[in-house]
Design a protein around this nucleic acid. Structure first.
Lengths: 199, 199
DNA sequence: CAAATTCTGTACCGTTCGGTATGGATTGGA
DNA sequence: TCCAATCCATACCGAACGGTACAGAATTTG
């Protein structure tokens, strides 16, 4: 892997441009975001985009990866909480915050991006579903540890509980995209937490 | 309103064709469903579709209306249950069934149809959000009655509880679209029900 | 039968889509 | 200074998009 030193240097910041692309995909979805929308927001023209990222789908995958790593860092932090309840509580509340951040699109890129498969035979939808499932699995592993540690009642199914938490999170994303405010999501989270077993 | 008796009679069943259109929108979303996809599935050609329904968006709205009336009839039935808990339980379980009906697209048309706004400035997404919110409101009214009747603890906020139930339902729809099976949705429902107050 | 009316089928419209060929601009290396 | 390499900008490509003009087929009314 050699650093390209010869030749004309790139005239834009690829990471900053990717951040602009994230917002476009977030607002309009994968199919709804046209190359014109994207390159306009990114401040570059089409060939520069293709040279830097590959094609539209590659750009989207990079956008999702960067989004997951930066805008969903709270999920990793929640896993570090000492108890299962604290993990779930922190995740759901931070998620509610993230879904309603002022100045950013409402909802979640992973869900806004696309649920239904269009002409691409649903590859993008499958990719998004797989990335959501990966998060669910990490949470299930954390909850399994909680069962081992006696932090959750014996017999609790960590996979079921993790799926429930992610279901609430996804439902909140749907609500946020429809315009629900932060207080509403918080109220939902409070009710949802009643279903989490505590000792 | 006169019955058109003169002229060549229509060569297809408009309701049956609408049912085929529902499945296409359900699988591919509003933007992902092209006129070619739709008219192929409906077994008619383009001018017949425009004459019978107006345009693509009108067709979609009719599809959603028919879907809500027929494929979501279980929601109305759930409202007739005697207690709030039975209402929520029946709704969430019937919803899980509907999201995983064999031979039909997985998930829910109202969510698959489109969350993000494309080039139409999000009119379709807003329409879908409004129709989902209407269902939430009906549930809230039913739960308010339950509070009045002493079926739910005094002080329970019916709007919050209804939003929670719809959130679980929407999250299940996202999961179902990603391939979750019926047993998984049932397990989620069982956990979710623990958050519903009982006397 | 003829006229009026309505639907069907083909073939097309302008626009937008994702993607690219090409040539000039800008840089490092020799 | 000249070349190789890389990037930027314009202008374009074929395909697919939603939507429609138009002619012919089928039916009711007179």
């Amino acid at each position: 892997m050699t650093v390209k030193t010869r030749g004309r240097p790139r005239g834009f910041d690829a990471d900053a441009a990717l951040d602009r692309a994230i917002e476009v995909f977030w607002e309009r979805g994968y199919e709804g975001a046209s190359l014109a929308d994207l390159t306009d927001a990114m401040g570059i023209n089409r060939p520069s985009m293709y040279a830097a990222y590959g094609n539209k789908e590659d750009l989207f995958r990079r956008a999702v990866a960067r989004y997951a790593e930066r805008d969903m860092a709270y999920a990793q932090e929640a896993l570090a909480e000492p108890t299962a309840y604290a993990t779930v509580e922190r995740f759901l509340k931070a998620n509610a915050d993230a879904l309603t951040l002022p100045g950013r699109p409402a909802g979640c890129l992973s869900i806004q991006g696309g649920l239904a498969g269009g002409s691409d035979n649903g590859q993008v939808a499958q990719f998004l579903a797989a990335s959501r499932l990966a998060g669910e699995k990490r949470l299930a592993e954390r909850l399994a540890r909680a069962v081992d540690e006696g932090d959750l009642p014996a017999g609790t199914d960590p996979a079921d509980l993790a799926r429930y938490v992610m279901t609430v999170s996804e439902g909140n994303a749907v609500h946020a995209a429809a315009g629900a405010d932060r207080a509403s999501l918080y109220a939902t989270v409070e009710i949802a937490l009643r279903a989490i077993p505590r000792l």
